[in-house]
């Protein structure tokens, strides 16, 4: 019927707008990650733990961060993976 096709048209319109917004947001996020690569990053973890490391990369669904020279409270770990679930935020300077 006329009303349902009009509705599905506006749905498609909405979906396209959402996809557009999604792609712009993701592209900008990936550019941000690129600029973090091989920079010194400070990780703020839960339980007030702060650690410094050299940023490497993260996986596509941002579940893990790969870092080098991770300064943990009990020593320096040459290479490490950090679970993003344990991280509150991370900061770096450009």
């Amino acid at each position: 019927s006329l009303s349902t096709s009009a509705a599905s048209e506006s749905d498609a319109d909405e979906l396209q707008k959402e996809q557009q917004a999604r792609s712009v947001l993701r592209e900008n996020f990936l550019r941000c990650l690129l600029s973090a690569a091989s920079k010194n990053v400070q990780f703020n973890m839960y339980e007030k733990v702060k650690m410094e490391a050299k940023f490497g990369a993260c996986d596509i669904d941002v579940l893990n961060f790969q870092v080098s020279d991770l300064h943990t409270p009990i020593g320096v770990q040459k290479e490490a993976l950090i679970r993003s679930q344990d991280v509150i935020s991370f900061t770096f300077e450009i």
Partner: peptide
């Protein structure tokens, strides 16, 4: 980030560089 909902916050500092906080 539309995948993880992580926010990228930027702080333009007066003298030094720019601080990026994810």
């Amino acid at each position: 980030d539309p995948v993880s909902a992580s926010m990228v916050l930027v702080d333009f500092m007066e003298s030094e560089g720019t601080l990026v906080q994810v």
